[in-house]
Design a protein around this nucleic acid. Structure first.
Lengths: 150, 150
DNA sequence: CCGACCTGTAACATGATATATTACAGGTGT
DNA sequence: ACACCTGTAATATATCATGTTACAGGTCGG
């Protein structure tokens, strides 16, 4: 099991929009080229982030624009926006038919749920603590280092 | 995306083995009845835990037996044993072909990896902090409360 | 030593999901 | 009018989780 690549694709997209938006028009085609996936995937991921209020898009003329500074967008915002996990079901898939006639079967769910929820919570809190500004900053630093060694 | 139910099934199995092993023979058929899945699933999950050294099994006569006390088995041990995530690839699936000709494309992976690894790490550390003794204890308490209200 | 019961494992079916791809209707700006 | 863009539907494919049947071989009580 792995968290869908939509997540890293979305982070890549946001970073690229921020990096390029002042110098060129950032269309889904262009982004698809940078990310290395089909433009339709990009448009879908962008659509999810638009619904989540992270960015705005312009039909026709093209290009996407962030609605707030990178420092106000966390990895958690992206993760939620692109639906990496079902919000209701949670991160862990509990087996669905523990036997109610068995004492363990009818109580294990309740006994485990609290711990599973906590695990999910610490993970999500860590995601909240990382902003897209952090990622963008690291990306720009890496690009800067490339220039040095040329 | 969700973590496979093999994980909660495995926790259920360990808890049930501990709960029943002194009073009856705990076969894969019996466990399958408690968990509510096919006996083959149980045998496969048990097989994975055997490979991980968490329990021993007896061909022929049946029954599984834990190799160490519940307090020495953590949720993380189970999670690793039943292969919830690919150990090499990690929890997050990075898109595989970011464009090396794009400055963002060729640096985003490195810029993100550190954060993704940290997120995975805090999650796994939380899993290490919960032992099967905790889960068993809560299960037994829940069973005890049932008895009270009868 | 036979028969009942068990495990380990392979083989196959099925449904869900991630990703890719084609297609097209409709918006925008020159 | 035309080129370029987005939003979205429809479809294809591959992978994976889970279920199911089947069977070879181990163990043990009678």
């Amino acid at each position: 099991m792995q968290i869908t690549s939509r997540f890293t694709i979305a982070v890549h997209i946001i970073t690229a929009i921020d990096y390029f938006q002042k110098t060129r028009r950032v269309s889904s085609e262009f982004l698809a080229g940078s990310v290395g996936v089909n433009p339709v995937i990009v448009r879908n991921v962008i659509g999810m982030m638009r619904e989540a209020g992270i960015l705005r898009t312009q039909k026709g003329s093209g290009g996407a624009e962030l609605t707030r500074p990178l420092s106000d967008i966390s990895l958690y915002d992206i993760y939620k926006a692109v639906d990496c996990v079902d919000s209701e079901a949670g991160l862990f898939h509990f087996h669905e038919q523990p036997n109610p006639e068995c004492p363990v079967g009818r109580n294990i769910h309740q006994a485990l749920d609290e711990s599973l929820a906590e695990i999910q919570r610490v993970m999500e809190e860590k995601m909240r603590s990382v902003s897209l500004a952090d990622i963008s900053e690291r990306t720009r630093q890496a690009i800067g280092k490339e220039a040095e060694t040329e």
